[in-house]
Design a binder for these strands. Sequence first.
DNA 1: GATTTGTTTGAAAGCGTCTTCAAATCGGGC
DNA 2: GCCCGATTTGAAGACGCTTTCAAACAAATC
Lengths: 350, 350
Amino acid sequence: MKGRATSFDIAYRAGVSQATVSRALRGSPLVSEETRKRVLAIAKELNYKVDKNASNLRRQHSVTLALLLFEDPTSDDSMINPFFLSMLGSITHACAKRGYDLLISFQQLSQDWHADYQDTHKADGLILLGYGDYLTARSRLEHLVDQGTHFVRWGAVVDDQRDISVGCDNVQGGRAIVEHLLAQGRRRIGYIGHASAHFPEFFDRYRGYCEALRAAGLEPDEALLVDAVDSTEVVGYNAACELVDRQVGFDALFAASDLQAMGAMRALADRGLAVPEQVAVVGFDDIPMARFANPPLTTVAQDTKRAGEVLVDTLLKIIKGEPAQSTLMPALPVIRRSCGAVPPGPEQSA
Amino acid sequence: MKGRATSFDIAYRAGVSQATVSRALRGSPLVSEETRKRVLAIAKELNYKVDKNASNLRRQHSVTLALLLFEDPTSDDSMINPFFLSMLGSITHACAKRGYDLLISFQQLSQDWHADYQDTHKADGLILLGYGDYLTARSRLEHLVDQGTHFVRWGAVVDDQRDISVGCDNVQGGRAIVEHLLAQGRRRIGYIGHASAHFPEFFDRYRGYCEALRAAGLEPDEALLVDAVDSTEVVGYNAACELVDRQVGFDALFAASDLQAMGAMRALADRGLAVPEQVAVVGFDDIPMARFANPPLTTVAQDTKRAGEVLVDTLLKIIKGEPAQSTLMPALPVIRRSCGAVPPGPEQSA
DNA sequence: GATTTGTTTGAAAGCGTCTTCAAATCGGGC
DNA sequence: GCCCGATTTGAAGACGCTTTCAAACAAATC
């Protein structure tokens, strides 16, 4: 018995044809219960496992999904955005629950996407996470659509997109958290992030910010806007410094991502500004770190767990050729101490 | 032209046999340069991609590795240990750099491992990360060895192991950080973690702790040891509370993981004990959060980037049948404020 | 011119599975 | 005893690629 057992080995020992073994193994009703039991027993005894390559080749699909994670090669520090990491966890779970395997691939933003998992039959579809500048990515996305590639994108729903995306309602999330800031009596609220179609998620958060302001009778002040594209702590730190240096006066800060918010908090501390007493700070994403920040960071939570499931389910629909639509999920404010709404008493456990 | 192009389509258009196409595509020297160019051009034109299932089936390997991540089903919160997450990132990179794809699979600790990626030819080998209680896992590991499964394990090097593992030198790391604590004048140092062969990494860190103590002429005090197995904040919180309640007096705390250390710091704060003034706290792992803790957490860094490369390279050797050995990597103390060695001035950027 | 050597090529045999199609078997019902 | 339907089975043909083996051809040697 050299090498791995094949279905022929089982067929031989069970005294049936290989076709019957295949049927028995895969639960076909065309095989008698008695035969199935015999085959299953022998398969187990020989520690037989179906060869997925052969099976996939024959059936023309792989029961595998591929996750494409994009990273900026400029930051040699290979630290991935924690938010994506938690998405990764939830996507893996969602896949497993549906019997799919998950292939992970890091893509360089600068280079052409290595997105041929479907063409090579290694995966039945793709999930795209964090592709950077949307306007740049757009032509590649459309190319994928034209090629008939099965994929879902995590991100904002844009007006005339031809692909399908799943994202959270960034406008609503931004509005809600800024409304909360306004309810605390804050009036001069800075925005760290981005405000153009290049980064639609950030743009939407900014839109929500504007909506909340206007609903409160305030007009957004350009002087309070600091452009920051990368979701890193350093970028947030520098952005907050810049805002302080502008000397325009502000009593709150809405950062488009938690990492930026945490950098901003550190900058404010270094500049001798008390958070939240002098400046309230809020972020977006609710990454695990947010809870441990000092003070704990108020932010907007995206339900990554559900997001993973929706992404996978949507992709599966696309693969099966069923009708599928883009989805917008709610974003919920998580109030902690950095916004000044919670007294500094002992934090609640966990 | 319905369906995906095959090598036969290319052969037809190029006026050569399918065998030649295959050779040209895979860079065989057995094909003339002229022919190769023609084939390559047509392949590109037709957007042809080699079917990996067919290719893998024929060649009997998949150029894919599988990463098995274990999780405790008791904590329904699907939060993965941040340390593993950064290992994941580095492993993915290492795989990509070597031309391998990576398959991710979450395993339930309680159930039998679903480790048949190699048997099904979906992957050429496995990387095991965080399999929980080693003594429990041991029989499964040996079963894998007996089956001839290609795998590497991330974890401590144990005396009589039959598998191959890559880990950091936990004894040395523990010793180094406790020596540092002693150098700060701390004498009553608590240990939160575990001290038995069930969790060899924690045990080794404890051994390092004892070594440092004894080298300083101190005897480890059982009363300062709190058993904590799970690397979570809550567990660390509770452990620190217990130690306070014991009223045995302590001026420092060494937690076997950063998450535990962060929980402990919160507990101490809640109990009115100042960190680091009254109690110095150090952790292990240097997870991204550690830098953001309040005060920033002194800890022991494991070089995850290199770890990923070593894991992958070792596994690749095993797959190729080359001699491979277990590796122990150095663990480096990272001094921040929580141990009292750094003045509380403005933190350095990034 | 015959033989050798070296370079390119094509035919064909798998790799291990799934699935179509036809055949075999078994009960009944008449 | 014969025919019909239902249930199980087996033979054989893909699936798309890689690789051995032999053949074809050109160049080079004697």
